[in-house]
């Protein structure tokens, strides 16, 4: 990293494999932070991470207290109807309070800042998704081998 925080060489690839709010935002925040620092960013969405770029789901991601001791709620409460929706709404409100945008706006910012967004071909097939089901800013649908090419020399984060 050079003195002015400007390093053309540095590349970051983030693999997003989960579709809950608490797993989606870390990837989005880090991608955006890297771009703000002048680092080249590629995001690759696979498995449940496809929800982050699925037009129908992206702004309706959920957070569940089930199996998550950090949320401080007994699992028995977590199974009740409406609890996941309530926990999700609360988390979204907190995120908004911190002035972090909703998922679609966040992805648009990342894309406008030069970040590349790729969907996993296998996950697309598995979930029976078509290109038109995906957020408009997604650059392409690629396979694992193409991802290997794209991520050459990059630091890779798997979330």
């Amino acid at each position: 990293m050079s003195e002015n925080g400007n390093d053309a060489e540095r590349k970051l690839c983030i693999i997003c494999s989960k579709g809950t709010i608490d797993m989606a935002y870390p990837g989005l925040v880090l991608a955006n932070a890297a771009l703000m620092e002048g680092i080249d960013v590629t995001m690759f969405f696979t498995f449940w991470g496809m929800d982050i770029i699925n037009k129908k789901k992206m702004n309706n991601l959920k957070a569940t207290p089930l199996g998550n001791p950090s949320m401080g709620m007994p699992n028995i409460v977590g199974i009740l109807p409406g609890v996941t929706a309530m926990a999700s709404a609360m988390m979204k409100k907190e995120i908004e309070k911190l002035d972090f945008p909703p998922v679609d706006e966040f992805l648009e910012t990342i894309h406008d800042a030069g970040g590349k967004l790729y969907a996993c071909r296998m996950a697309m097939d598995m979930m029976k998704l078509k290109k038109e089901d995906l957020f408009s800013e997604v650059d392409d649908v690629i396979g694992a081998m193409e991802f290997m090419e794209l991520s050459e020399g990059a630091q890779v984060l798997f979330i």
Partner: peptide, 29 residues
């Protein structure tokens, strides 16, 4: 955003603050 990255390419957050005579930005967004 697009224009901001064109005006201050490769790491706009720090470049903007530097030129504006402000301290290193600490925000995450």
């Amino acid at each position: 955003t697009k224009e901001l990255y064109k005006l201050f390419p490769k790491g706009p957050a720090k470049k903007v603050a530097k030129v504006a005579g402000l301290s290193k930005p600490t925000g995450c967004i």
